[in-house]
């Protein structure tokens, strides 16, 4: 009986190995797991092959070595029904992966997550302490304006120094990207720097008004959009697509009304600003729209 379970388990493990192998061969693995995590998948493939092969080989031999010496601890399914149920459960991911690996998350998922139009400041904390502190500061300033300003200068220098050591490298990269954006006439939002570019455009929209921008994504609409509005959006992934957030830019123009949700498009237009839900966000106006095929790499990935 035990050797039967070993045989089936060995085959299931080999099935998982085949699944990973196929996803790697067809480069569809990135449709599930961020490239950053792929080394772990290679490790898993290797281990599954060894475990599966060993189980299948061992199932043929009926020696006492063929099971680990802690039988009481591991449980084998007892009835035929539970055997079928449990092994079907294990086969479910393999079957989904081998048959349906072409699917890309669509706008119905996006609408449930909400779109990020770029980096947003954290909510203001409503602490009463802050207010009393401010009051104290005002009083202090009224008593001794010069001394107060001196203190403020010192504090500012302190903060600048702290910042310098801690966040220098990311700061530098962001500064570089910002200068690149301001220096160029046409901003192309690439897959590699999708999220950071969108964040930068959103943070510096005042300086970028009037510049050309080119961006690729799928069509997505929030429920309260007007007919001339859509978002050109991508799912931004950290580890696996279950943690994906939606990033995108608002597009406005009479020619977007007829576009269906989930159509993949390349938009070229001019950056302006607008107000959406009380916050200032960039918007692409006078858009030229080109319909495209679903890209080989539909997702974008966090860049850290």
């Amino acid at each position: 009986m035990r050797s039967f379970h070993m045989f089936i388990r060995g085959i299931i493990l080999a099935g998982y190995a085949l699944l990973l192998f196929k996803l790697l061969l067809t480069s569809q693995l990135a449709n599930y797991v961020s490239p950053k995590m792929h080394p772990f998948i290679y490790f898993a493939l290797f281990v599954l092959l060894i475990l599966g092969g060993m189980q299948i080989l061992r199932s043929g031999m009926n020696t006492s070595e063929s099971h680990c010496h802690c039988d009481g601890e591991h449980h084998m399914p007892k009835t035929p029904a539970s055997t079928v149920f449990i092994y079907s459960l294990f086969l479910l991911p393999v079957m989904i992966g081998l048959m349906l690996s072409n699917h890309v998350l669509d706008s119905s998922v996006a609408s449930k997550r909400g779109v990020q139009f770029g980096a947003q400041p954290l909510a203001e904390s409503t602490n009463s302490q802050v207010q009393t502190e401010e009051k104290d500061l005002v009083e202090e300033y009224l008593r001794d304006p010069e001394g107060y300003m001196k203190k403020v200068d010192e504090r500012v220098n302190e903060i600048l120094q702290e910042d310098d050591s801690a966040v220098q490298s990311t700061e530098k990269e962001n500064e570089q990207l910002k200068n690149d954006l301001i220096g160029t006439d046409k901003i192309v939002v690439t897959d590699e720097k999708y999220i950071s570019t969108i964040n930068m455009i959103s943070e510096n929209v005042e300086q970028l008004i009037g510049k050309k921008v080119e961006i690729t994504g799928f069509v997505f609409r929030e429920r309260d959009f007007r007919s001339n509005q859509l978002v050109v959006a991508r799912f931004g992934v950290t580890c696996c697509i279950a943690d994906a957030s939606v990033y995108g830019m608002l597009v406005e123009g009479e020619n977007v009304a007829k576009l269906k949700d989930d159509t993949w498009i390349k938009v070229t237009g001019t950056i302006h600003k607008t107000t959406y839900h009380q916050s200032t966000i960039p918007v692409i106006e006078q858009p030229a729209i080109e319909m495209i095929e679903v890209p080989d790499q539909p997702y974008v990935y966090e860049e850290y």
């Binding site: 693995l29 599930y32 995590m37 991911p93 989904i96 890309v104 119905s108 697509i241 279950a242």
Partner: peptide, 15 residues
Amino acid sequence: NVSTLFLSIILEAIP
């Protein structure tokens, strides 16, 4: 959508 998310969670967890 559910089966794609399901598989991604499994693939991420296996290693």
